[in-house]
């Protein structure tokens, strides 16, 4: 793993000047992941979403590397096709047999947990030599903060409104990282933009693992979470420290916590600074807060049970 000094000398493959919001977690995730790709060329695929519309406004592109956007639900299938072409063209003798290229697909949680889950599952099962990176900001931010299956229980979203009959989203999040781990692919990890070294190390491992790899990156959205642009990293850190978003990896089926949390903080510390959870702190919603804490505790215990006790 490269140290911070070495990383600063690596080429940034996502140029500045893109149109993402200040404090957007997605671009931080992309830059840290691509730093883990090393010196080899990378072909990037991207699902429709904030990241795509903000970085590829014709005739401009923020990508200093080959890039393809196809549609919303299929960045995994699209990149699997690019990787297939690499193999086919090598066999045809049209590409140098020693040439190395990395393949990575990005998608938000809407394009990954929901509409893209089938294509992602297919690409993972087929075992293409690719990395799929989900930047999880917990809602359909590009279309205006609609709920996804990654939206936390109790959160406000424009299709999970807060009113007298309903305090925000009623359902729990889907545990996508575990779902992909259940595919038995060689490398799966959960990471956060707040822990750059952990994320970049995971990206490096994912790129260096032959076959399919998946990283789920926690990427706050100031616009959708109703948080200040300057708070992105702090809130992401708080998700880790409260156990809301544990950092771990599953390498060849072995689960391991990569960042230990010794004095896990109450989930309220993660929820309270965010406008999307404001209603939970109004009188009468104490039971819901307790339920959210209980869910976090249960998931945490499940994770610890899965992780090898090293």
């Amino acid at each position: 793993m490269a140290n911070l000094k070495e990383l600063t000398h690596r080429e940034d493959r996502l140029a500045g000047g893109h149109r993402l919001c200040a404090g957007c977690g997605a671009s931080i995730a992309v830059r840290q992941v691509l730093l883990g790709a090393g010196e080899d060329p990378v072909v990037v695929g991207c699902a429709t979403g904030c990241l795509e519309v903000s970085t590829t406004i014709y005739p401009y592109s923020s990508w200093k590397t080959p890039f393809i956007h196809n549609a919303f639900e299929n960045s995994s299938a699209t990149i699997s096709g690019v990787e297939a072409a690499f193999n086919g063209l090598k066999r045809a003798g049209k590409i140098d047999p020693d040439k190395k290229v990395r393949f990575v697909a990005f998608g938000g949680d809407g394009g990954t947990y929901d509409i893209g889950l089938q294509a992602l599952s297919g690409a993972m099962e087929r075992g293409h030599d690719m990395v799929y990176v989900c930047y999880d900001n917990g809602a359909y931010m590009n279309t205006g903060i609609q709920r996804s299956s990654a939206t936390p229980k109790g959160a406000w979203a424009t299709t999970a409104e807060v009113g007298s009959a309903q305090p925000g989203k009623q359902q729990k999040r889907k545990d996508l990282t575990a779902i992909i781990a259940a595919h038995g692919v060689p490398y799966v990890a959960q990471a956060s933009v707040s822990h750059w070294k952990d994320l970049t190390t995971k990206a490096e491992k994912a790129f260096n693992t032959p076959g399919a790899a998946f990283i789920n990156v926690f990427a706050p959205c100031p616009r959708g979470w109703r948080t200040p642009s300057s708070a992105t990293i702090e809130i992401a850190k708080s998700a880790v420290q409260t156990g809301f978003w544990p950092l771990y990896e599953v390498e060849d089926g072995v689960w391991r916590q990569t960042v230990k949390v010794h004095n896990r903080k109450p989930v309220e510390e993660f929820l309270k600074p965010q406008g999307r959870f404001k209603h939970l702190f109004a009188p009468g919603n104490e039971a819901l807060l307790a339920e959210i804490q209980a869910d976090v505790d249960r998931s945490w215990d499940q994770l610890l049970a899965r992780c090898s006790q090293d």
Binding site: V43, G45, I68, N70, A71, E73, N74, A77, T78, I79, S80, G81, V82, A84, A85, F86, N87, G88, L89, R91, A92, K94, Q118, A119, S121, G122, A123, E125, R126
Partner: peptide
């Protein structure tokens, strides 16, 4: 055949992978 044969999980992914492969420079 030297062809890379991708046994996708749906027709939507079939054409998606064809698009990726064709943009990559392959005959598809």
């Amino acid at each position: 055949t030297h062809c890379e044969y991708v046994t996708v999980e749906s027709e939507h992914s079939a054409m998606s992978a064809c698009i990726g492969a064709s943009a990559a420079g392959a005959r598809v």
